[in-house]
Each structure stands twice: as C-alpha cells, then as structure tokens.
Amino acid sequence: MQEVIDIALNVSLVIHLVLIGFALWRVWYGENAIDRLIAVDLTGTLILAVLVIVTLREQQGLYLDVAMGLAALGFTGTVLLGKYFADQRLS
C-alpha cells in the first residue's frame, strides 16, 4: 500500500510541475493585467501544492512552514496589486 501512495505522490508532483508550466504560459500570454495577476496567483497556489506534496514525500514538517509563509505573502501581494490596478494608488 505504501508503494501505491509513493507512486501517486510522484505522479501528482510531476502533474503539478506541468501545471505550473501552463500557468506561467498564461502569465506570458495574458490578455490584460488582471488576467496575468490571476495567473501569478495560480502559480503561487500550485507551488504551495508542490510544497505540501514534498512534505508528504519526505515526511518532514519543515516544508509546511515555507508553505505558510508563501501563502501569506502571495495573498497580501495579490490583493495589493489588484487594488493598485483598480485605484492607481495603494492607500
């Protein structure tokens, strides 16, 4: 059973890396600023998923701290950039 879980985790890791590639393609070929911002946020979320999968594979809780910091900083940055694009100011 453990072998099946290991195979599933490896396949899921590869799939998430390919999906990060698609999200970066969308960042490059986006239609407008909000579209690219959505793609950047999607990239951050997928990197978060990759960190959680690495946590599962390596059985170490250290990667989850990195994931928490990445989630908080990505959320703050995306919301602030959305407000800046809408209002042309940050306050």
Partner: peptide, 20 residues
Amino acid sequence: VLLAVVTGTLFSIIGVMGMI
C-alpha cells in the same frame, strides 16, 4: 491519503484547464 491526493490533483487539473 490516496483518495485525497488523487482528488486534489484532479481538482488542480480542472482548475488549470478552466484557466486556459
């Protein structure tokens, strides 16, 4: 664990397909 990993990966694939 196996069911959660497979379902989460499927949701990620669906989300990126919708994004494209």
